[in-house]
């Protein structure tokens, strides 16, 4: 599909043509899923965000500026849907009171034993647990900066944050990751020296 075709599809979609919107969905689904998964780290949540993002895009299509880039616009919607999903997860986590869940949360914050840390496969789990400890905005800003290579300015525009808020969300995320990953860093230093 060339640029003029894409524009024509967009115009038809904005006029309420469902098939045209379907073409946009099919064109962008992979990228939306990948972004949602990078931000959430969970396949089912990412699928839910894909659905919600396209629904929001459909509802807001009338406000989309035709000269803007649809992919960029959809990227912002997806990132914000993912933030909402993270907030919902945070809320659910806070509401859980059963001892099994508390134990698992404690296990996450205490971290694995040195023996288990030595296992390379544990690193991914610890990183994922550490990311879960971040607030929704910290995780979103960190993911966009670290994994997606977005500049602070782009993060501001994507998440509707001020520059200072976006920077500090990234800084706080890095600080928390440093604490969580310190044992691994020490371990790799020991290995390097031996």
């Amino acid at each position: 599909m060339d640029a003029s075709d894409r524009t024509a599809v967009l115009i038809r979609a904005r006029q309420g043509d469902e098939d045209a919107f379907g073409a946009l969905v099919q064109q962008h689904s992979h990228r939306v899923f990948q972004l949602a998964f990078r931000m959430l780290g969970n396949e089912q949540d990412a699928e839910d965000v894909v659905q919600e993002s396209f629904l929001r895009a459909y509802r807001q299509l009338g406000r989309f500026q035709a000269r803007a880039d649809f992919g960029t616009w959809l990227y912002r919607i997806t990132a914000n849907c993912a933030v909402d999903m993270m907030r919902t997860r945070e809320h659910r986590l806070r509401q859980r009171t059963d001892p099994i869940d508390e134990a698992s949360i404690n296990a996450q914050t205490e971290g694995p034993s040195p023996e288990r840390m030595a296992e390379g496969a544990q690193l991914g789990t610890v990183v994922e647990n550490a990311l879960h400890e971040l607030t929704a905005v910290e995780r979103a800003a960190f993911t966009l900066r670290h994994h997606d290579g977005r500049s602070i300015d782009e993060i501001c525009r994507t998440l509707n944050l001020g520059k200072s808020a976006a920077k500090h969300a990234v800084f706080r995320a890095v600080r928390k990751l440093r604490v969580a990953l310190a044992p691994f860093r020490n371990l790799s230093n020991v290995e390097a020296k031996s």
Partner: peptide, 19 residues
């Protein structure tokens, strides 16, 4: 060093008909 420990995220594959 810390940030280098954060692995790249590989999202699960989706088929050609995913869209």
């Amino acid at each position: 060093e810390t940030l280098a420990l954060v692995p790249a995220v590989t999202s699960p594959e989706r088929g050609d008909h995913y869209g």
